[in-house]
Design a protein around this nucleic acid. Structure first.
Lengths: 233, 233
DNA sequence: CGCGAGCTTGACGTTGTTCAACTAGAGTGG
DNA sequence: CCACTCTAGTTGAACAACGTCAAGCTCGCG
């Protein structure tokens, strides 16, 4: 068991989290964090943090793409936000709640390390600039959720799907051409509509030449017009 | 000008913000905050903080009810959240942004005082427990927005309106019977639907005996069933 | 008294969901 | 190596939900 947990996939000296941390805190303090930290790999689909569970640790996501997922009483899922590394996740609860408000799942292979919340809090409370930096990291999820919130709230499906395509292109894959890591079902959970509607709409965009669709591969041909659709609603 | 600004509506010694602050910081420090602070009153409908403006101060809301309002490129409004005093507002931007991401408007007569962001930040950075407390205050808006986000995202209008009625009853007016401070239009902007739809749905709830509707006065007769409608979607 | 803003109502067309049938690919076992 | 099954994706049609529109109403205010 210990053997597995201590497996190391990468060198901490190469890690952004160390670089950032050491701008604020002493190396010895970072070493304390590190000594309590464990490197982990997640396969596509794996749950990283479980909604409702007690949040005992953060995860510094060094590589990969994740979704923030909310499951309601009826078992219906809703994707609040999609984020890529680097990110500090789980922190949605630092200020707010003892238990995870959402689940976090890998939608691409992910790599990162756990960070002890209690210890990080203790260190951060002794160093306010560091605390500030950590909070910036942590509240990112809220900001990106609100982007999606606004899109959902007063656009119809055309606009929302255009929004999501642009978001994925510009914020996640950083290219006009990408292989979607989401299933159609997940896309629907992000867009707040049925999967059939996603399929119909993507097909329509394809037929109109806005995008090129080949299964999971999507190419945005006309970002201009997508932006117009997004703007118009 | 100065005369007007220095008008005082209430005694700071009675104010919750002082009580809380003085649990963490020295009286002399609080006096610094106070000396830079101005008491203000807002009438129903007045804008307290304007979306896009530089956020130079917080407002400690001592009395009243406010809405967080987002206006999109086409001039359409969306109410993200409704909150009542006591609250520290404008802070949605503390960690995140230099400019206000949303507007804040009074929907009932409000009373509060400005707080200098730079000074509060300076003091809070010297006192992490206080910083933490302030952050808790400030991030409340996010949590309550996400409540509404989830409701919007995968419930239909029936469920959303039931949600809002319950929210208003339990979190804002603290009674089963209240006089709505929102116009039908604003209710629609909160529910993410058309005002006619709000009217139709409220009328239906009325006819089914779930609520009693008399213009702006609403009585929740059957919270149980409203909860069921909310849950079912 | 008349005007205007907010509210209400019902009709109608559009949007979006649900359902059922079908296809394609991946994994399984004989 | 070929059925078989399971899952994800796709399609179109029927139906329900929702927005838009147009008309009329109410109430407060000049």
């Amino acid at each position: 068991m210990d053997q597995i947990n201590h497996q190391r996939y990468y060198d901490c000296d190469d890690c952004l989290f160390k670089t950032i941390s050491c701008q604020y805190i002493q190396k010895e303090e970072f070493e304390k964090l590190r000594s309590k930290s464990v490197q982990l790999r997640y396969k596509k689909g794996e749950v990283i943090l479980k909604q409702g569970a007690k949040s005992t640790h953060f995860l510094f996501l060094r590589k990969g793409i994740i979704k923030f997922n909310y499951e309601d009483e009826n078992g219906k899922n809703l994707i609040l936000s999609i984020n890529k590394a680097p990110a500090l996740i789980g922190g949605a609860n630092l200020v707010n709640a003892e238990f995870n408000l959402f689940s976090v799942c890998a939608i691409e292979e992910c790599e990162g390390c756990t960070i002890d919340v209690a210890l990080l809090t203790r260190i951060a409370l002794g160093n306010t600039l560091y605390l500030f930096k950590m909070l910036q990291f942590i509240t990112d999820i809220f900001r990106s959720s609100i982007f999606n919130f606004i899109s959902l709230a007063h656009k119809q499906v055309n606009g929302r799907i255009a929004d999501i395509l642009i978001f994925l292109s510009q914020n996640i894959y950083l290219s006009n051409s990408f292989v979607l890591s989401l299933s159609r079902q997940e896309f629907a959970e992000f867009a707040g509509c049925s999967k059939e509607n996603v399929i119909h709409t993507l097909r329509k965009f394809h037929n109109e030449g806005l995008i090129t669709l080949e299964g999971k591969k999507i190419v945005l041909n006309d970002t201009e017009r997508l932006l117009k659709i997004s703007k118009h609603g």
